[in-house]
Write a protein that binds this DNA or RNA. Structure first.
Length: 421
DNA sequence: CTTCCACAGGAAGGTCTGGCGG
DNA sequence: CCGCCAGACCTTCCTGTGGAAG
C-alpha cells in the first residue's frame, strides 16, 4: 500500500486519496526497526549506558559492557539510540568518536566480523578487505592499523553476540586496546541469553563484563504506553477502539513482555481491519491477528522442516485423518506413527530412520509447537507418547502438499490404510 | 502385591561436512 | 592442498518406568 511520509499528505492529492482508504499514516512506525524520538520506560537504561560511554567524549576509553535482556525488551533500539546521540555530541564537540553496529547473527565468524569492522574504518588510503582470501591474523593487524590511524575513540556494538562462533574473536577484540597506540576501543555485547557468559573463557568474561546492564521485560502498562506512542504516529486518529491497545499489551505481556510482539499484533490487527474495509479496529481484529501470526509461524516452520521430519509429520496427519474418518479420533502413539512412517519411506524409496531417532524428531516437532506429545502410561499396554496435532490437519497438509513428493504420498497412504483395514 | 508392555530416553560410537591452521 | 577437529545427524545398545492387568 502507501508508504507516503506524513508530511506529504497535504500536497499530494492522490496520496491523500490513497490514504483515505486505509488506516495507516506511517506504516513504518509500527515496525521494529523504527526509531522513535522517545523510548518510553527505558530512561534508566539510556542514562546508565550513556554514563558508561561518556568517557569517549573526553577521549578516554569507556568500559566494555554486556547487555542482557529477553527479545523485545529494547536492547538494540536503546543501544542504537545512545550510539546516535554519542555521534551527534562527538561531532558537536569536535571529538573523533565512531560507533559501529554489527549483528552477529548475520556476521557470525571471526573473519567476517573483523572484516566487517575493518570496512567501517575505510578511507581513501586504505584498501577494502576482501570477504575471503586473507589469513585471519593479517585481517586483524590490518584492522589494528586502520583503527589506530583515526586516533579516535571507537565503540563497537556486537548484537546477538551469543551467535558468534567460537570465543576467539571476542578474546582478540577484548585485548585489542593493549595493541593500540593512539586509538581507543570499547565493546558493547548484547545477548538475550543470560547464561551466555558461563561458557566463555574466564579472561574474556572478565574483560567484556566490566559493566553489566540488564533490560527487564516490559509489563502490560509499559507496553500500553509504547503502543499508544507508536499508534499516534502510525495510525489515523480515532481508528482504535479503547480496549484494543490494552488487549495487545496484555497478550504480549503474557509472552515475557515482548514489545516487538505487541507491535506486531497491533500492526497486523490494523492491517486485517484495513483489508476488510472496516474503519475502526476492534478486539475482534486483535484475535484475528493473533491467529494469523501463529499460523504464519507454524506454516514457516513446517515449510523449512527437514525431509525426514516432514515424512513423520505426514504420517501423523494421515493417521489423524484416518482416525477422524472412522470417528475414532484420539491420540496417536509413537509406534503407530513409526509404522506408517516406515511405509511412507518405502513408497518414497527413501531410507527410513530408526525408531529411536524418530522418537527424537517427534519431540522436536513438539517443541516447535506443531504437535503436542505427552508421555503417558497405558499400564499393561506400555508407556508411550500421546501425539495430537496442535494445528489443523488441513493447514499442515496444505503446506506439505506444496512439495510434489508429499502430495503423491498423501494419496498413496490413504489407499494403503484402506487396504490394511 | 508383582508383572510386564511399549515405549522413553541416556550413553557411546560411527559418518559426514565444513571451517581452520599449517 | 591436506590433516585435524567440531558439530550435526544417526545408529546401536542399553536401562528405566507408570500403571492396568492378573
Amino acid at each position: 500500500m502507501s508508504f507516503f511520509p506524513a508530511k506529504t499528505v497535504n500536497s499530494d492529492i492522490f496520496g491523500r486519496l490513497l490514504l483515505s482508504e486505509g488506516l495507516f499514516i506511517n506504516r513504518e512506525a509500527m515496525r521494529p526497526s523504527y526509531m522513535p524520538q522517545i523510548l518510553p520506560h527505558r530512561e534508566r537504561q539510556i542514562n546508565e549506558l550513556a554514563s558508561i560511554l561518556v568517557p569517549a567524549l573526553r577521549g578516554e576509553t569507556p568500559s566494555n559492557i554486556f547487555i542482557y535482556g529477553k527479545t523485545g525488551t529494547g536492547k538494540t533500539i536503546v543501544t542504537k539510540f545512545v550510539g546516535g546521540e554519542l555521534l551527534k555530541k562527538g561531532e558537536e564537540m569536535g571529538k573523533y568518536v565512531t560507533f559501529v553496529y554489527i549483528n552477529c547473527e548475520v556476521v557470525d565468524t571471526q573473519y567476517r566480523l573483523l572484516q566487517n569492522i575493518a570496512n567501517h574504518f575505510i578511507n581513501e588510503w586504505s584498501e577494502r578487505i576482501p570477504f575471503t582470501g586473507w589469513p585471519t591474523d593479517e585481517v586483524f593487524s590490518k584492522l589494528l592499523t586502520m583503527i589506530d590511524k583515526n586516533k579516535g575513540v571507537n565503540v563497537i556494538i556486537l548484537d546477538e553476540v551469543d551467535k558468534l562462533k567460537g570465543d576467539e574473536a571476542l578474546y582478540n577484540l577484548s585485548r585489542i586496546n593493549s595493541s593500540l597506540e593512539y586509538a581507543k576501543l570499547s565493546i558493547v555485547g548484547i545477548s538475550n541469553d543470560l547464561k551466555f557468559t558461563e561458557f566463555l573463557d574466564p579472561r574474556v568474561k572478565s574483560s567484556l563484563g566490566e559493566e553489566n546492564l540488564i533490560f527487564p521485560p516490559y509489563d502490560a502498562e509499559e507496553l500500553q504506553d509504547i503502543l499508544n506512542q507508536r499508534a499516534l504516529i502510525a495510525l489515523k486518529p480515532g481508528c482504535l477502539d479503547d480496549d484494543v491497545v490494552p488487549l495487545c499489551a496484555a497478550l504480549a505481556a503474557q509472552e515475557h513482555g515482548d514489545a516487538r510482539r505487541a507491535l506486531d499484533l497491533l500492526r497486523m490487527a490494523a492491517e486485517i481491519c484495513e483489508r476488510q474495509g472496516v474503519s475502526c479496529v476492534s478486539k475482534k481484529f486483535v484475535r484475528l491477528a493473533q491467529n494469523k501470526i501463529e499460523t504464519d509461524r507454524v506454516t514457516e516452520v513446517i515449510r523449512t522442516l527437514p525431509a525426514q521430519s516432514k515424512l513423520i509429520l505426514l504420517a501423523i496427519v494421515l493417521q489423524h485423518q484416518h482416525d477422524s474418518q472412522k470417528g475414532t479420533s484420539g491420540p496417536i502413539t509413537t509406534g503407530e506413527v513409526y509404522e506408517i512412517y516406515k511405509d511412507l519411506c518405502k513408497k518414497a524409496r527413501a531410507d527410513s530412520l530408526t525408531q529411536r531417532r524418530v522418537a527424537d524428531l517427534i519431540s522436536e516437532l513438539d517443541m516447535l509447537g506443531i504437535i503436542t506429545a505427552r508421555v503417558i502410561s497405558k499400564g499393561r499396554y506400555g508407556r508411550t507418547r500421546e501425539i495430537q496435532l496442535s494445528t489443523s490437519s488441513d493447514e499442515i497438509m496444505f503446506v506439505l502438499k506444496e512439495d510434489e513428493v508429499y502430495d503423491d504420498l498423501s494419496n498413496y497412504k490413504i489407499n494403503a490404510q484402506a487396504r490394511l483395514m
